[in-house]
Design a protein around this nucleic acid. Structure first.
Lengths: 125, 125
DNA sequence: GCTTTAAACTTGCAAAATGCAAGTTAGACT
DNA sequence: AGTCTAACTTGCATTTTGCAAGTTTAAAGC
């Protein structure tokens, strides 16, 4: 998937944001990059929610083509070459913080086990 | 769908927010209720993005069970009985505004036709 | 009060997205 | 040179979405 094949449902900016971010996984990848800083493919795979490898690859490719995420070393091979947020991706930080705070206040009656802060990832292997 | 059968992927608040709102349609319904105020089922159907009737019914039922949306007249029949945001739903306003502003700045190079403000809905029939 | 109308859904099925397991590739390390 | 393993890709089952059609029911008109 890349930005050429994006389908924009309308001219509404909120809808356009959701055309990019409105699925089960994309914002969780952004969350990991906000919380942990630059992160490799395997580290992103290790998040507790358990994203599938094909979905992770697809979403990283979309986020890259929209210049929201980039490789730390653009000219080096993929192995151990972490992804990080660009300025545009980093600009989502207040939005995600707002979502987290909203959930803590407004979903606490439905999800008893919710944490105060994002939890750290499990060790891999 | 109702809140009993919600699957929470993790204890992370951001993830929990996305468990509820992280799909193609839910936040667009919230957007319509923020922009227009109380709105009937048919009015919500008329939004320019074209949500399907079964998806709209399903999402309204989920939002209702999470007490984010309610009927204007709780004890009256459904016909012409609009939905509106509860206090919890209304609390998403700054998040959606943030998303819209983010998109205007960060997606403008990829979506030339994006508007400055959400557009008004088409007339029905 | 009986019929008609239309808003508010529900249902059934096709199409697309997601989830899962397994396989492939290529650079780094010895 | 050979092995290892991170970073993917592929194939297929399952789930979610999209679309068209059908159903229900309060209310408006006669």
């Amino acid at each position: 998937m890349d930005s050429e094949e994006m389908k924009w449902r309308s001219a509404c900016p909120i809808c356009s944001a959701l055309d990019v971010l409105g699925d089960r996984w994309t914002m969780l990848i952004v969350r990991d990059l906000i919380v942990h800083g630059p992160r490799t493919y395997s580290e992103l795979l290790d998040s507790p929610e358990g994203i599938a490898t094909n979905i992770l690859a697809d979403r990283l490719s979309l986020l890259s083509s929209l210049m929201l995420v980039e490789r730390v070393n653009p000219d080096s091979p993929a192995r151990n070459n972490a992804f990080r947020l660009t300025k545009g991706g980093e600009a989502l930080r207040p939005v995600l913080e707002g979502l987290g705070k909203w959930a803590q206040v407004n979903l606490k009656n439905f999800h008893q086990d919710m944490l105060r802060m994002p939890d750290s990832p499990k060790k891999r292997k």
